[in-house]
Computed example of a mutant assay.
Amino acid sequence: MNTPVAAAGPGRALITINSRPSSVMVRGDGSWLMDEAGKRYLDLMQGWAVNSLGHSPAVIAQALAAQAQRLLNPGPAFYNRPALDLAERLVELSCFDRVFFVNSGTEANEGAVKLARRWGRKHRGGAFEIIGFESGFHGRSLAMMSASGKPGWDRIYAPMPGGFVKATFNDIASVERAITPDSVAVMIELVQGEAGVRLADPGFVRELRALTTERQLLLIVDEVQTGIGRCGHAFAHEMYDVEPDVMTLAKGIGGGLPLAAMLCKEALNCFEPGDQGGTYCGNPVMTAVGLAVVNEVCRREFLDTVRERARQLSDGLQALVREHGLVGERGAGLLRALILSTDQAEDVVLAARNLAPVGLLINAPRPHLLRFMPALTISEAELDEALRMLGRVLRDTLR
């Protein structure tokens, strides 16, 4: 049997899934990361928006340590107190009545699709089809890749699961055309993060809520990236003044640890025992952390500060647009994008990371676009420093 030659570098024992720099991160503190060589980085990615309270915050470390000494996992056959408390807190904060905990955004969105199809079987004559949107992103399982509208994802692992159709974002007529007797739900990100921080138009969202109500379709809002304070509100749909039927949460709810949730109205609580579950769903360690995160982030004073930092970031990015003749900036809360006039986003990301003595970590979801997802706790001074560093990189890279 031939033994493959391992690739050189620190990841030689890992299956290749993406391109990574050779740096190995060893420590994090708030908005800062440090690698094995001792270099520090000002982090505006935060694990793709998961570290809502920054790296290694005391509130998470304390909740984690305390619960780990009490109970790790009694299994899904029993209730545990942290899961019950977090579910009650989420219901109290939202317009929903029931909560199902899982480990990732993909699982939460899978759960929402399962719930919609179970409801469709019971109340809509077997309706099963989910209407999504072009350029949407809902996860990396086969079903969620089918639910997503990311270009090319229908070919990587073909044949793909069926039952998913696509409409055009911000085009209510395209949604109407997509509806058939088999339609059971519409699934939408109010801010399409992976597509470049594209916001749903408020008028479109109101029309979508009215249309789904009229046609007896469920409205599923994917708040995996936007929920738990990211957009300056507990949930992004509050900005649109609509109530979805189902909502999914992940990323920020765990503050950097694997936790996600699917929430629904009481009328949709239609799983039969055994229909849905998971070995680690609602385990007490993760839900104890989630409760600590939610209690911290969803305070009025905390969210007021998030909105202040969002205005600071938006104003700073707009100043860079004017200085460098860029296309513009957009976003909601502390999920924002800078649109370049050329396809040099990856060059900017590399140059920012390589800054010395301190690097800057940013993300390029599109060739012409940079995305910013800082910790919700980033300080005014840290954000000013990040904007200065970004300006320096743009001057050096785009000239």
Rank of each mutant, 00 (worst) to 15 (best):
I15T: 04
G316Q: 09
P76Q: 15
F100I: 14
E382Q: 14
S379E: 03
L190K: 00
A234C: 11
P4L: 15
I188W: 13
K166I: 02
A58C: 01
D384T: 15
F133I: 01
Q216V: 06
S148T: 03
L42S: 00
D384N: 10
P161M: 11
V327N: 11
T287R: 10
M247D: 04
T213I: 02
N269W: 14
R300C: 04
V289H: 07
G111V: 09
G30P: 03
L208T: 00
P365H: 12
T342N: 13
R81N: 06
G328E: 14
F128M: 13
Y157K: 08
P57R: 10
V184E: 04
N269F: 06
R299V: 07
G28R: 03
G232R: 04
P258Y: 15
E107A: 13
L355W: 05
P82N: 11
F101Q: 09
F164S: 05
T213H: 13
A143C: 07
L369Q: 06
L53F: 05
T3A: 12
G196A: 04
V393D: 04
L71F: 04
D43L: 04
A386E: 04
A352I: 00
R206C: 01
P202W: 15
N51D: 08
K39P: 01
A83C: 05
L291W: 01
G391R: 04
G162C: 11
G105L: 03
S146F: 01
K251G: 08
G256F: 00
S94N: 10
